[in-house]
């Protein structure tokens, strides 16, 4: 099965089909929440539901893009490398929607509230910083920029590590009564970052 996915990517139509599946599949969460919102299925506080949903999907895409490095080393899995950029861009896409949703649905673009939240709330400052760190990565994600920056491209894109730690902190800072979900994502991140450390140190 995994071997055939690599083979699939050797055919132009196979590449196209798989690209379309990955691209379209990544839009499913957005489609689902939009449908729920339009049908008014989100309960008394749709704003909070949408914000939380977009945030957790931004985090998931970031984690999945970080999983490409360990995954591609598994036999027959080298094809995942083709989608690293797409997954990373989707992480920023969902993070940006998350931010827009906070500003629009929770704060109503009220300048006083925006200023207050961005300057006084540690968990918001941390989350916003993570988003800012991801911006240059998206801008330089093209092949052209990769060539132009050469060796420094890799250094620049190491920003994804501090960004992911800030995202984790942002998430953990929201804990009120249960920490199981946060713990699971933290363990996955610990593995993803620990694996890189292991590759570097061995």
């Amino acid at each position: 099965m995994v071997l055939s996915l690599n083979a699939l990517h050797r055919h132009p139509w196979g590449r196209w089909l798989f690209w379309a599946l990955m691209f379209g599949g990544s839009l499913l969460p957005l489609g689902w929440i939009t449908l729920q919102a339009v049908q008014q299925q989100l309960g008394a506080d749709p704003a909070q539901v949408i914000v939380t949903f977009l945030g957790i999907w931004a985090l998931r895409f970031l984690w999945v893009s970080l999983a490409v490095t360990p995954l591609r080393r598994l036999p027959g899995m080298s094809w995942v490398m083709r989608y690293r950029r797409m997954l990373g861009l989707y992480a920023l896409f969902y993070a940006s929607l998350h931010l827009l949703a906070v500003a629009t649905f929770i704060l109503g673009w009220r300048p006083d509230l925006l200023l207050r939240e961005l300057t006084e709330r540690p968990y918001i400052i941390v989350g916003f910083t993570a988003w800012v760190l991801l911006l240059p990565l998206a801008l330089t994600s093209t092949k052209g920029w990769q060539r132009r920056l050469g060796k420094r491209w890799k250094q620049l894109h190491a920003l994804v590590y501090p960004a992911s730690l800030l995202v984790m902190l942002h998430f953990a800072w929201l804990i009120r009564a249960g920490y199981l979900e946060v713990l699971i994502y933290a363990l996955i991140l610990a593995f993803l970052l620990g694996y890189r450390l292991y590759l570097k140190l061995r």
């Binding site: 919102a37 008394a44 506080d45 749709p46 704003a47 629009t104 649905f105 929770i106 109503g108 009220r110």
Partner: peptide, 11 residues
Amino acid sequence: RLPSSLFSPNI
């Protein structure tokens, strides 16, 4: 104040 509407949140 809930229920709040999406594009004019009831703040």
